[in-house]
């Protein structure tokens, strides 16, 4: 998993590419979420456009990020969710938890 961070106003956009499948990815993502919270960045948009591989463990990593953000009065939303990730979210009913967007501007506006 590779991570690229950029800012758009108050929103931090975390671009993830490669695979999102557990193992070291879980530690990397957990550390990243904690760093963002510590630096006061609590409006986080995860851009999944570059994710080629995901499994239930990868979705679990996103859930941990979501719950950690919410416990710290922040929010975490998803951008560019592939059909495969959408299928996993739908089957597990996590589509009712995560806000997902196809349009970056719309996603950023939703935080305000």
């Amino acid at each position: 998993m590779k991570v690229r961070i950029r800012e758009s106003g108050q929103v931090t956009i975390v671009g993830i590419s490669g695979k999102l499948m557990g193992g070291a990815d879980a530690d990397t993502f957990r550390d990243l979420v904690h760093q963002l919270i510590e630096s006061g960045k609590k409006k986080v948009l995860i851009d999944l456009a570059g994710v080629k591989w995901v499994n239930s463990t990868g979705v679990g990593i996103l859930i941990t990020g979501y719950t950690t953000m919410r416990r710290n009065k922040g929010d975490l939303k998803l951008l560019n969710v592939s059909n495969k990730i959408q299928s996993i979210l739908y089957v597990t009913k996590l589509n009712l938890i995560f806000e997902c967007f196809d349009d970056q501007d719309e996603a950023i506006a939703s935080f305000s």
């Binding site: 239930s56 463990t57 679990g60 996993i88 597990t92 996590l94």
Partner: peptide, 19 residues
């Protein structure tokens, strides 16, 4: 429960059964 956000893991078999 796969929609329980307190669980990070444990959804794999549920997903396979459903799909």
């Amino acid at each position: 429960d796969p929609s329980d956000i307190e669980h990070q893991r444990g959804r794999g078999i549920y997903i396979m059964k459903e799909m």
